[in-house]
Design a binder for these strands. Structure first.
Lengths: 102, 102
DNA sequence: CTGTATCCGGTTTGATACTG
DNA sequence: CAGTATCAAACCGGATACAG
């Protein structure tokens, strides 16, 4: 449940950012298991939708920082609600799976 | 955003069921645009995770009714939060898209 | 009516190589 | 370090046919 591709990754990014500002590579470490490509792709999407702010420093080597915008931070509430629900009902879900698989 | 495949459909099913009990065909009408296959597949998933209760009446023709379980109903709150957030920030998102695409 | 199985085309993804 | 381009493999969803 809710563990379907793209969405989970976006959620993970939002959770990872929280109130912080992170560089691309930091984000990549934070959200484990994500490929270079997917992270880029999803960050572009989040940026495009105005949920994430991208700040590139014209240095060498490059340094790019990502931060949640206001709407992005507002989304954290929703993400937290999802996490809360999951935490609260995980037991039920797992036992349901157990009965089903049996 | 959030409009990615499987998840939307599960949300739609949860919204459609609400407090009601619906038959397969009723659900199919309620969630428009969903294919026979996808609806079945997602209902199985929801059932497997204990979010939806499936009650089959051994009649001819068959009559199968779906209802949200307690965890399933609890999820409605989360779904509503998502809808609320979307409603609240849609303007911002669209203007962000506009700036980006330009 | 409800549900399963199969085939098939489009989409998505990870790996890899390359740029500034 | 951050990002793009390309390509084959895996995945997914719709259409269709069939069953109880």
């Amino acid at each position: 449940m809710w563990d379907v591709r793209g969405e989970v990754l976006k959620r993970a990014v939002i959770e990872a950012l929280g109130e912080r500002t992170l560089r691309f590579s930091e984000l990549r470490n934070e959200v484990e298991g994500v490929s270079h490509k997917m992270l880029t792709q999803n960050l572009r999407m989040l940026e495009r939708n105005g949920l994430v702010d991208r700040k590139a420093h014209p240095t060498v080597p490059p340094r790019v920082e990502y931060t949640l915008t206001d709407p992005g931070r507002a989304l954290r509430t929703v993400v937290d609600a999802i996490c809360g629900w999951t935490h609260q009902h995980l037991g039920h879900i797992e036992s349901a799976r157990g009965r089903f698989g049996a």
